[in-house]
Write a protein that binds this DNA or RNA. Structure first.
Length: 874
RNA sequence: GGAGGCGUAGCUCAGUUGGUUAGAGCACUACCUUGACAUGGUAGAGGUCGGAGGUUCGAGCCCUCUCGCGUCCACCA
């Protein structure tokens, strides 16, 4: 194989993805002998472009699905797009505006035609971008929230809920966006603190006897006031209750009512009541049977009931009303006031609470079982703390406003008979009124909240309401992966929808990740222009590097900052892996036949690396199963860099460059074995480069993505042998440090004279010690006295090492070093002994820990004695 | 107002039921182009884990209080 000296992902990422797609390995097959594992991809909006949030989503899900696929599960990752009703409509309207066309100009059908064109044009863009990330999802099952399948599920669910009385139509206060001209759900409103004013207004009594002062943040709504309320126990206003006030700027008179809602301690204790424009006032109005007077149009201008202010924009009207009030002597004072103002989550206009006839989903009966499911662990949030956020929302949720005054979306399946007024809601489109037979029936103009269809995603995409093979096999799904920002919008709604419509929770686990911030920790946003385009990162560093940087050291649920440096570090790791593979493959050619690992006579270093590998396999698997992807990726990268590259490859060199052909072949067998396993462990995280290398290994065939994920093999654990070998490694490290301390050039080979009880172990690894420590020879001696000339020395657990360095030896420095070492050891002994002298520790701590401390004391006392002896010999 | 999070090396962050001497990457110091890799190697330096109490044989981790900084939810007109 011809491998470049440096890793260059551009050479192969696209090619490998194309091969994968061709291979059919992405497709999940129903297989009775396998266990299904299903992930539903959170459908990105058709208007969307790949951003870091998607990159994070994709990386986590792809890592999990590849892991499970390699473990032998029938792994389905189902991709798709969301029609994103309001977001898409806003964009299309914007585009039309630039062409000078309005919705009214082209009508509903014309608009929908444009919308579908838009979907065709942009709907696939993000799916193509996803491929760049290496996503191994089942494109053959790709879905769209408005495709036939999903639409049928929406219809089924709507009618069922309607028939159960869980969907109703009513005049209620909703959040109205005057810009998008549609109702919004509570979840679609974002609150932000804004500086505003508190206008104090005087309403005179009709009989002129007195007046009351009320305060408001929205003076224009006073035109819709139908009462003033005071607290029933408020002595100041008791006599006022039942009296009539004159509403300024109008010729209307309004009553004073008593209601518990009023807080007598706040403001003047008098509240103007505007049932059509405030949710609390609406409730007060209902209790007192007050008229509801809506004074604003859908576009935020004042309507005919606003009298002289008709046609004015809400803010223009506000200004004029205030000045008119002032002129009339009704304005008492203006206070500065900061308050939270709701904004449309799509266009960011200030929303108006307005009374309007809309469709609602009754939440209480749906929320209860959904709360239970999480309480009983049928659905588990990872990390667990997000279940509290979920409870908090679910327990306080209000009825869900699902109708939108938009055209792009699922049209509400309700018809009204023009003749008898019958409301018709059926699964099949009606042609005549079932009650009176009239053909004059008209469908509701509105469409459904986009999240109504997203809520059904885990089962609508699998064929619900039909009991399809896919549905039976893959549902419920296993894990949902998403950011904490859409728990309310989506996760919560999927949970109650799944339970209500399928009788099952839609997924067992919810893996929540944080958001990716910019390098300064700010949220990435269009307005700040601080977004980082994953495609550019991929272009520069490759998809594997980006993926790894999104995984390493990241804890579930925590936000993380994007950093070029981190991506670079990951790229460097992959380059390291690349070169390790290059090293192995370069040497493969020099051997006739590589034996199978089972037949190899393993050297101590071999057993050590295999032991480390087994440990790594076990830990990585455990952590992946716990969704600790950050820990898992750290473990496997550390294994490859530290254990395999920095140690084992170097340890293998004496064998590879030696004369013993058998030993050479054995070492190569171990190198191949470990590399192959490492690639498999890494594949879920960095799929491209592992595939590229894997294809070139001897004895591998097929794609690594369907290779078996390594399994822990206790026969290969070699715990004792690995521990013993670490004694050898300590000697190597000690010699390196000694040379460095003595300013001995690394290229200068030195003689090692060793006093030890572990002669056999050291003899077995003599070549390695010489090679890795930069020595020329290794001799065993019985004491320092046997070594000629001035030496530096070091004590490790299994050996005393003497290195004659002639002129380089600085006796004073050497004394100082030994003294410091003795001091350090004394500290360790003191620490351990103080623990052991504590009766409570000895009695209460686990025996294992007590024994370990005893061992430690013994070990350090032994080392100390040796250090003292060396010091004395100087 | 309610809930939840964060504070650990110069920087960015890990640290899973409490248990050896608290880890990584980047940055830093010194040396090294040694036949995979300078996107590298070797050896280092760097932390009283925000603060104060408490529980425990033992606390970065558990409890209480406290300081600082984000987040979400609710919202008094």
């Amino acid at each position: 194989m011809d491998m470049q000296k440096t890793y260059n992902p551009k050479d192969f990422e696209d090619r490998i993805y194309a091969d994968w797609e061709k291979s059919g390995h992405f497709r999940a097959e129903i297989d009775a002998d396998k266990v299904p594992f299903t992930i539903m991809m959170p459908p990105p909006n058709i208007t969307g472009q790949l951003h870091m949030g998607h990159a994070m989503d994709a990386t986590l899900q792809d890592t999990l699905i590849r892991f499970k696929r390699m473990q032998g599960y029938a792994a389905l990752w189902l991709p798709g797009c969301d029609h994103a009703s309001i977001a898409t409509e806003v964009k299309i309207v914007e585009k039309m505006k630039s062409e000078g066309v309005t919705k009214a100009d082209i009508g509903r059908d014309g608009f929908l035609e444009r919308a579908w064109d838009w979907k065709e044009q942009y709907g696939n863009r993000i799916m193509l971008q996803q491929r760049k990330m290496g996503t191994s999802c089942d494109w053959s099952r790709q879905a769209f929230t408005m495709d036939e399948k999903c639409s049928r599920a929406v219809r089924e669910v709507f009618v069922n809920l309607y028939e159960k009385g869980l969907i109703y139509q009513g005049d209620r206060i909703i959040n109205w966006c005057p810009c998008c001209k549609t109702a919004l759900s509570d979840a679609e409103v974002e609150y932000a603190e804004e500086g505003g004013h508190f206008w104090h207004l005087r309403y005179p009594a009709a009989d002129g006897s007195t007046d009351v002062v009320v305060a408001t943040t929205r003076p224009e709504t006073m035109l819709g006031d139908t009462a003033v309320a005071v607290h029933p126990d408020d002595e100041r206003y008791k006599s006022l209750v039942g009296k009539t006030l004159k509403l300024p700027l109008t010729d209307r008179e309004i009553p004073v009512v008593a209601d518990e809602y009023v807080d007598p301690a706040f403001g003047t204790g008098c509240v103007k009541i505007t049932p059509a424009h405030d949710p609390n006032d609406f409730e007060v109005g209902k209790r007192h049977d007050l008229p509801v007077i809506r004074v604003m149009n859908d576009d935020g201008t004042m309507n005919g009931l606003a009298g002289a202010y008709q046609g004015l924009d809400r803010y223009v009207a506000r200004k004029k009303i205030v000045s008119d009030l002032e002129a009339g002597g009704y304005l008492v004072k203006i206070e500065a006031h900061t308050h939270n103002v709701g904004h449309c989550y799509r266009c960011h206009s200030t929303v108006e609470p307005i009374v309007s006839k809309q469709w609602f989903v009754k939440m209480e009966p749906l929320a209860k079982p959904a709360i239970n499911a999480v309480m009983k662990n049928k659905v588990k949030f990872v990390p667990e703390r997000f279940s509290k956020i979920y409870y908090n929302w679910m327990e306080n949720v209000r009825d869900w406003c699902i109708s939108r005054q938009l055209w792009w979306g699922h049209r509400i399946p309700v018809w009204y008979c023009q003749d008898c007024g019958k409301v018709i809601c059926t699964k099949d489109d009606p042609t005549v009124c079932p009650k009176c037979g009239s053909a004059h029936i008209r469908q509701d103009e509105d469409v459904l909240d986009t999240w109504f269809s997203s809520a059904l995603w885990p089962f609508s995409t699998l064929g619900y309401p039909d009991e399809t093979e896919d549905y039976k096999y893959f549902y419920p799904t296993d894990v949902l992966v998403t950011g904490y920002d859409i728990i309310f919008f989506w996760v919560a709604r999927m949970i109650f929808s799944g339970i209500e419509h399928t009788g099952k929770v839609p997924f067992h686990d919810v893996l929540i990740h944080g958001i990716i911030r910019d390098e300064q920790g700010r949220k990435m946003s269009k307005s700040l222009g601080n977004g980082i385009d994953p495609l550019e990162v991929i272009e520069k560093y490759g998809a594997d590097s980006l993926r790894l940087s999104l995984l390493r050291g990241v804890a579930p649920g925590n936000d993380t900052r994007y950093s070029d440096t981190k991506v670079e570090a990951c790229r460097n790791f992959i380059n390291k892996l690349w070169n390790a593979a290059r090293f192995v493959l370069m040497n493969v050619g020099s051997v006739k036949k590589i034996p199978s690992i089972e037949t190899v006579k393993l050297a101590p270093a071999d057993k050590w690396i295999i032991s480390k590998l087994q440990n790594c396999i076990r830990e990585v698997t455990t952590n992946l199963n716990k969704y600790e992807l950050g820990v898992a990726s750290d473990l496997v990268t550390d294994f490859v860099w530290d254990n395999f590259c920095d140690w084992y490859i170097e340890l293998s060199k004496p064998a590879l460059y030696g004369e013993d052909e058998g030993r050479k072949a054995d070492a190569l067998a171990v190198l191949c074995f470990v590399l192959e396993n490492a690639l498999k462990l890494l594949h879920p995280f960095i799929p491209f480069v592992t595939e590229e290398i894997y294809a070139n290994l001897p004895k591998t065939k097929g794609s690594i993505m369907v290779a078996e994920f390594p399994r822990y093999n206790s026969k290969m654990a070699y715990k004792k042998e690995a521990k013993a070998f670490e004694g050898v490694m300590e000697i190597i490290k000690a010699v390196r440090a000694m040379k460095k301390d003595a300013d001995c050039p690394p290229s200068k080979k030195v003689e090692l004279h060793i006093v030890t009880d572990s002669k056999r172990l050291i003899q077995l690894n003599k070549d390695c010690i010489i090679k890795l420590s930069g020595a020329s020879a290794l001799n065993f001696v019985d004491s320092a006295a046997e070594v000629d000339g001035k030496t530096v020395s070091s004590v490790t657990e299994i050996a005393q090492i003497y290195v004659p360095l002639g002129e380089l030896v600085d006796v004073e420095k050497e004394k100082a070093r030994l003294t410091a070492e003795i001091e350090r050891i004394d500290g360790e002994i003191a620490r351990a002994e103080s623990k052991l002298s504590n009766a409570n520790f000895v009695n209460k701590a686990p025996q294992k820990l007590v024994d370990a401390e005893k061992e430690k004391v013994k070990k350090y006392q032994d080392m100390k004695a040796k250090c003292v002896a060396q010091l004395e010999s100087l």
